[in-house]
Amino acid sequence: MNDAAVIAKDGEEHGARRLRFEIFRFNPCDPDSRPHYDTFELDDAPGMTLFIALNLIREQQDPGLQFDFVCRAGICGSCAMLINGRPTLACRTLTGTLPDTVRLSPLPVFELIGDLSVNTGKWMRQMSERLRTWVDVAEDVDLDSLETPMDPDAAQAIYELERCIECGCCVAGCGTAVMRESFVGAVGLNKMARFRLDPRDTREDADFFELIGTDEGIFGCMSLLGCDDVCPKDLPLQTQLAYLRRKMAKVTLTG
């Protein structure tokens, strides 16, 4: 018996509460499909996550229900969706923390693939290409020699920002991104902050300004900070956005 079955059986045996799921349904490939919510019911169980719950619904009630899970461990960022209106990772949301009725919707902003599945990958790739989210290394390094030393604290500080999993929660939680499709979102801005910190990246603030010193970048951000409050990785987005804004403003004032 797999983990889902073990947990579900446990719920049945212990007489758990009944959960009611209202799930957004729409298949853009099907000309007869219209957006609506379908209701499913399921017994809650201790340790049950939305990953388990949605798979049980698919196995037992509707084999055509679309949603995305990959790692089911909160690290790959595939399963972000609106849970009672708030974007978060479904795989690590324990049903025990939810009310009796749970409304699940796909993330806004991103292209809908079907039901709860959205195309975050396409959005993220476009953002990466626009912002050039890589360490801009001018030339190849000699792989036989010792690596260039780096301050241990600097490495750790970079990792703090690199923990982003591109789940899209910050974009879906952003009032600006919801209104303006071209806004790069906290995910893009945080990446710029990460590369700005990196001593290996040869770009200067003036180069970063070209990429994000715009209304689609840092100066489009209105500091609603939904991003900071919904980020599943607790990235310090508020601090990073303010920091970038100050640095980019400095470029304006001095450059």
């Binding site: 360490v135 290394v137 260039t148 780096m150 241990p152 750790q156 970079i158 990196d198 290996r200 990246d201």
Partner: peptide, 9 residues
């Protein structure tokens, strides 16, 4: 390391 992985040092 050259491409940007922040290996612990």
């Amino acid at each position: 390391a050259h491409w940007g992985v922040p290996w612990n040092r």
